[in-house]
C-alpha cells in the first residue's frame, strides 16, 4: 500500500514536471512581457534594465528553476487579466465546476445502473432495445450539441404548428409537442448560498438548482450511454458465470441473485472505467461551461487562452494534472479494496 502510493507519487511528479516544462516553454514564445509593461517612450536601455532585473535574460534552465521553486510553494504568478494570484482565481472558479461534475455524476449513477441492469436481464425486451438504440444515438451526439438542443427546447421554447389547428386533436398535438422554454440557461443564477470561504453553492436554493439542471444534464448525456452499455455488457457476462447459475440452482430469489450476487461483480470494471471517465468529464466541462456560460474553471481556461493569460493557463494545466492523478489513484485504491485479488504493488494493470 505504502509502496503503491510512493510509486504513484513518483508518477505524479513526473507528469507534473512534463506539464510544467511544456507550459513554461511556451511562455517564451508569447511576446515580450516588458513591452506589455512599459509605455512606448521608454528607451531601449531602460527596457534592458527591467529585463535584467526580472531575470528575463537568464538562461532557460535558470528561469525554469526559479519558476519551479515558486510553483512548488504554490505561487504560479499573477494573472494578467484578473491582476491577482492565478491560484486564487482558480480557487474561486473551482467550486462551480465541481458542483457541475457532482450533479452530472449523480445523474449518471442514478440512471445508468437500473437501465444497464434491466437491459442485461431482459436483453430482448423492446424496452431494452429502445434503451440501447437511444444510447448509441446519445454517444453520437457531441456534448455541446446536446446542450444547444436542450437550450432550444427548455430555455427558448419550441412552437409546433405541424398539425392542422382546426381539429381538436391537431391543436392538442401542437400543444403537446410545443414547449414553453422558461428554464434558465445562462450562468449560475442570483440565489447562491455561501457555504465556506469562496464556495457558493447552487445546491441549496430552488433558483440555484434550476440553473444547474440543464448544464448537468448535458454533461451527463455524454457519459450516460457509455455507462449503460458498459454495465449491460459486464452484467450479461456475469450472468453467464458458474456462480450465478449455482445461486440460481440453490433457489435464491432472482432479485437477490441479480442485485446481490451479480451486480457486485459487475461493478468492478465499472469502477475502473468510471473513475477514469470522471476525470474525463473535466475535459467536457470546458464545452458545457462554454455553452451555458457557467462560471467554472473550463470557461475561465478558455477565456485565459483567448486573452493569452499565461500564468492562468499554466496553473489551470497544473491543477487539472493534479485532479487527474488524484482521481486515478483513488480509483486504483477503491479497486484494490473491493477486489482483494488485485495487488497494488505488483505489476500495474
Amino acid at each position: 500500500m505504502i509502496a503503491f502510493l510512493i510509486k504513484r507519487l513518483m508518477h505524479a511528479i513526473l507528469v507534473m514536471f512534463v506539464i510544467s516544462v511544456l507550459a513554461f516553454a511556451i511562455q517564451d514564445n508569447l511576446g515580450d512581457p516588458v513591452q506589455q509593461m512599459v509605455g512606448q517612450s521608454v528607451p531601449e536601455s531602460e527596457r534592458e534594465e527591467i529585463r535584467e532585473r526580472l531575470g528575463l535574460n537568464d538562461p532557460f534552465l535558470v528561469q525554469y528553476a526559479r519558476f519551479a521553486k515558486n510553483a512548488v510553494q504554490g505561487d504560479f504568478g499573477y494573472s494578467y487579466f484578473y491582476r491577482e494570484p492565478a491560484l486564487e482565481v482558480i480557487a474561486r472558479h473551482l467550486p462551480a465546476t465541481l458542483e457541475l461534475v457532482f450533479a452530472a455524476t449523480l445523474i449518471i449513477v442514478l440512471f445508468s445502473v437500473p437501465i444497464g441492469v434491466y437491459s442485461a436481464i431482459k436483453p430482448r425486451s423492446p424496452i431494452s432495445r429502445l434503451f440501447m438504440g437511444v444510447s448509441i444515438i446519445g454517444i453520437s451526439i457531441p456534448v455541446f450539441l446536446t446542450a444547444i438542443v436542450l437550450i432550444q427546447i427548455f430555455a427558448i421554447g419550441v412552437t409546433v404548428t405541424l398539425f392542422p389547428e382546426s381539429t381538436g386533436w391537431g391543436a392538442w398535438l401542437n400543444d403537446f409537442f410545443s414547449t414553453e422554454g422558461n428554464m434558465p440557461s445562462f450562468g449560475r443564477g442570483y440565489d447562491l448560498v455561501n457555504v465556506v470561504g469562496n464556495w457558493d453553492t447552487n445546491l441549496a436554493t430552488w433558483n440555484g438548482l434550476q440553473h444547474l439542471v440543464l448544464p448537468a444534464v448535458s454533461l451527463a448525456s455524454i457519459m450516460l450511454p457509455l455507462f449503460i452499455r458498459l454495465i449491460r455488457a459486464e452484467m450479461m457476462e456475469v450472468l453467464q458465470s458458474e456462480y450465478v447459475k449455482y445461486a440460481r440452482a440453490k433457489g435464491i430469489s432472482m432479485r437477490r441473485v441479480y442485485f446481490v450476487h451479480a451486480l457486485k461483480n459487475t461493478m468492478l470494471p465499472v469502477i475502473t472505467v468510471g473513475g477514469v471517465q470522471i476525470g474525463t468529464m473535466v475535459a467536457y466541462t470546458i464545452l458545457t461551461e462554454t455553452v451555458f456560460q457557467w462560471p467554472g474553471m473550463g470557461l475561465m481556461f478558455l477565456d485565459a487562452i483567448n486573452r493569452a493569460d499565461i500564468p492562468l493557463i499554466v496553473s489551470y494545466l497544473m491543477i487539472v494534472g493534479v485532479i487527474f492523478v488524484v482521481t486515478n489513484t483513488i480509483v486504483d485504491l477503491i479497486y484494490g479494496m473491493v477486489n482483494p485479488t488485485v495487488k497494488l504493488t505488483g505489476k500495474p494493470a
Binding site: I26, L30, G279, T280, Y284, I305, A308, I313
Partner: peptide, 22 residues
C-alpha cells in the same frame, strides 16, 4: 497510459490551445 489518463479530448484541447497561443 499517461496520455490516456488525461483523456484524448483534454489533450487535444490543451495542445490546440497552446499551439494557437504560440
Amino acid at each position: 497510459d499517461i496520455q490516456l489518463s488525461f483523456s484524448t479530448l483534454m489533450v487535444a484541447i490543451v495542445v490546440g490551445a497552446l499551439v494557437k497561443a504560440t
